[in-house]
């Protein structure tokens, strides 16, 4: 922490709240169909998809807003947007 004379902010998850609660649709990954291309990671506007080549993708559902870009852009349709429970 610095000695700032003005209010400052530092990077931290959840600056907009637990944004996973915004979701009405949930991206569900079928890893068998995943070809490890990284497209979903690249386009995810929220940075909630973790990916390294050779390691399958992982989605952070605490913050995923459920936009569905990953599912739409996935070249093998390995991600499906499923209704959230109770909706």
């Amino acid at each position: 922490m610095g000695l700032e004379l003005v209010p400052v902010s530092r990077p931290a998850p959840g600056s907009g709240g637990i944004t996973g609660t915004w979701r009405t649709l949930r991206p569900v990954v079928d890893l068998k169909k995943c070809i490890d291309c990284g497209i979903c990671w690249l386009y995810c506007p929220e940075s909630v998809i973790d990916w390294e080549k050779g390691q399958k993708i992982k989605i952070d559902y605490t913050y995923c807003k459920g936009c569905g870009i990953c599912a739409h852009e996935c070249p093998t349709k390995a991600i499906e947007m499923a209704p959230e429970a109770g909706l």
Binding site: T19, W22, P45, E46, S47, E52, Y63, C64, K65
Partner: peptide, 14 residues
């Protein structure tokens, strides 16, 4: 791979 956009921000979905 550094997350310069941090999860849980205030942007609209998509």
């Amino acid at each position: 791979k550094t997350k310069y956009v941090v999860p849980g921000n205030s942007a609209c979905a998509g």
